[in-house]
Design a protein around this nucleic acid. Structure first.
Lengths: 157, 157
DNA sequence: AAGACATGAAACTTTGATTGTTGCGTGACA
DNA sequence: TGTCACGCAACAATCAAAGTTTCATGTCTT
């Protein structure tokens, strides 16, 4: 059930930039997340504005982390990709003149707002570095499995 | 920020069916929520399957509540409209072969799943009757304001 | 200075899910 | 028998994210 992929994708990229490449062009990044360079620039522009990455033009240019993953929270990334609406549902756009609808909307929005605040609070307490460590645990798990079984599981992209 | 409106709309309708009309045709309901009869039938079919409303064909037919609003929770309605995805974002559809992406997806999905469970738990503890009472408080507020100012604020739809 | 490389930015197309629409079939009541 | 109302299927409209194309700008190398 694919929806807005920007946050997931940007987290993916940030970890690669920290653990694997240090600097990468939009094209290289595009291959990491199986899309194209323009989409990458569009998303990364938000990260640059928030001081999470920097970009350089010309030969040897590309994208680079501007600060360590320990100082980037999931909330930072969420805001950097434009604070898209968290929920997939809600009420009509214009305020209703029907009082029943007003009551329903108010209650629903209040409930969602509360849930949103809780989720963002959680996001603000998770550093991207934590996800990078999740990855390394997975990597070590695969490596040790390889040593035992001599199978050829390899890391890709 | 309009997204999936089904839950909001169905709550609206259920309260009208309890407080105002008792039985209504798809066309009448369509006017309440400013859409057309087919859309109404599509959404209400889910409510009927869950035993929340009943429908009758022919003369004098239409839709009717099958049980009191005190016995219908927001969660019931959410499930009746098909359990649409709660969140507006997520990860790629197919499981990744990149370990970094796997780690990001796993963490993100776990966080969202937790938030989803909390929200549904809250939904299951709110009866539609509560929203109906929210409405009546609003209604009384307007009535008393009318008595004081002789203005002509009227309830619509 | 020329050319290749890489980002910046604008305009357009594609995609996917909800919503909206049309048409026809079926059951029920007068 | 005719009207009313739901049931159902197929199709069009809508909207945002994602994808694409094109051109401009800046930078490094030769």
């Amino acid at each position: 059930m694919p929806r807005d992929l920007r946050m997931s994708r940007m987290l993916h990229v940030l970890i690669h930039l920290d653990r694997h490449v240090e600097r990468a062009t939009s094209d290289q990044i595009a291959k990491m997340i199986t899309t194209n360079a323009v989409v990458v620039r569009r998303m990364m522009a938000g990260l640059r504005e928030r001081g999470i990455v920097t970009s350089e033009k010309g030969h040897g240019g590309g994208w680079q982390l501007a600060r360590p993953l320990t100082e980037i929270s999931l909330c930072d990334v969420y805001e950097a990709v434009g604070r898209p609406p968290l929920f997939n549902f809600g009420s009509e756009a214009e305020p209703a003149n029907c009082l029943v609808e007003q009551a329903v909307d108010a209650r629903l929005e209040a409930t969602l707002l509360e849930a949103e605040e809780r989720l963002l609070e959680q996001f603000s307490q998770i550093a991207v570095e934590e996800l990078a460590q999740d990855f390394e645990r997975r990597f070590e798990g695969i490596r040790s499995a390889e040593r035992q079984s001599c199978s050829t599981i390899s890391e890709k992209s």
